[in-house]
């Protein structure tokens, strides 16, 4: 019987529930991941937690290419869920890991992705306590899809997208658009000779430093993933019933990212990030929070980019470099480069 044991690609047998799957899990997955214990093969993990308030989130990850400058789908899957927990001020503790693998994926690539998952989780001090692996036929998935769910322990203060208040300062933790542009350039094999790297990072220690500096002054936190700054500002404006005025000249961006956006006809404000956050902070504490961010390795380029206003609730306005104002819209959909 050909079990495919020696093949260097994933095949449907690896998702069969039988010996091949057990071998894949035992040899490739468990050794690479933190938090494994004899209960790893139980139907459900049991966890002990002290906090009386938990944060719980889930996110699914698809990206092409699977590996890109600065990270891969595995790093994204860990960082993304950690960041969603961190945006509620929670300390991430436990993750689940669901893999949907397309038949034909190279085993070496799977190993690399799993290694990244393990490294990212270890670095962030979270345990992967439960998981699932499925294999689907060729053409039914884009290499690999990953789902992670996460549980974190809330602190005394829980920031909320509904809590921004007029007068708050809007702070971002660093340069925008790095991830989206790095992935697009890698995906389309564009010949842009610049060192473009994804900014993928776990933001929970940055958030901890911010909350320690200010306590309850951090009203709102949002990680700037798909839809970028434009989506996050619009979501906050809508959810909090406030207006936002941002200043174009204050928004930090690497020149090569700005240039790539110009060439591709994309709005840099709508491009995704995977290691940046936006905070709406009480003006009285904004300086302290900014200093705390700038003292953290992931917030060195943090700055104030605008403020929350009471006028035009639900709307985000951008002050242009030449002093005029325009609306910064919620991005419509797929980012598509234009013809000219």
């Amino acid at each position: 019987m050909n079990t495919g044991k020696n093949s260097e690609t994933i095949n449907l047998g690896h998702g069969s529930g039988g010996a091949m799957m057990q071998e894949l899990i035992a040899q490739e997955l468990l050794p690479a991941l933190p938090g494994q214990s004899p209960q790893a093969l139980e139907d459900a993990a049991t966890i002990s937690i002290a906090a009386d308030r938990l944060a719980f989130t889930t996110d699914s990850f698809t990206v092409q290419p699977l590996v890109f400058p600065g990270g891969d789908i595995g790093t994204l899957a860990v960082h993304g869920t950690i960041n969603d927990l961190a945006m509620r001020g929670a300390t991430p503790r436990f993750l689940s890991l669901g893999l949907i693998i397309e038949e034909g994926l190279a085993l070496a690539l799977l190993r690399q992705i799993i290694k990244s998952i393990g490294a990212a989780a270890r670095e962030a001090d979270v345990n992967i306590v439960t998981g699932d692996t499925k294999v689907v036929g060729h053409g039914s998935a884009d290499g690999i899809f990953i789902n992670t769910a996460g549980i974190g322990e809330c602190g005394a203060h829980v920031p909320s997208v509904t809590a921004a208040q007029p007068g708050d300062k809007a702070l971002v933790s660093g340069t925008l658009g790095d991830h989206g542009i790095a992935v697009m350039v890698a995906r389309e094999a564009l010949e842009i000779s610049a060192d473009l790297r994804s900014d993928t990072a776990a933001l929970h220690t940055l958030v901890a430093a911010m909350l320690e500096a200010s306590g309850e002054a951090v009203h709102t936190l949002r990680d700037l993933t798909r839809g970028g700054l434009a989506a996050a500002l619009n979501e906050i404006a809508a959810s909090s019933g406030v207006g936002v005025l941002a200043e174009a000249t204050a928004i930090p961006m690497r020149p090569e990212v700005g240039s790539a956006c110009e060439i591709l006809g994309l709005s840099p404000y709508a491009v995704a990030n995977e290691g940046k956050l936006l905070a709406m902070v009480d003006a009285a504490a904004a300086d302290e929070v900014l200093q705390a961010m700038q003292s953290h390795p992931l917030g060195r380029d943090a700055c104030v980019i605008g403020e929350v206003i009471s006028e035009s609730p639900g709307m985000v306005q951008l002050q242009t470099p030449i002093g005029t104002r325009r609306v910064l819209e919620l991005p419509a959909g797929e980012l598509l480069p234009r013809i000219c």
């Binding site: 242009t320 030449i322 104002r325």
Partner: peptide, 8 residues
């Protein structure tokens, strides 16, 4: 539109 030039 992006620079709001009509306002000038």
């Amino acid at each position: 539109a992006r620079y709001g030039l009509a306002q000038l």
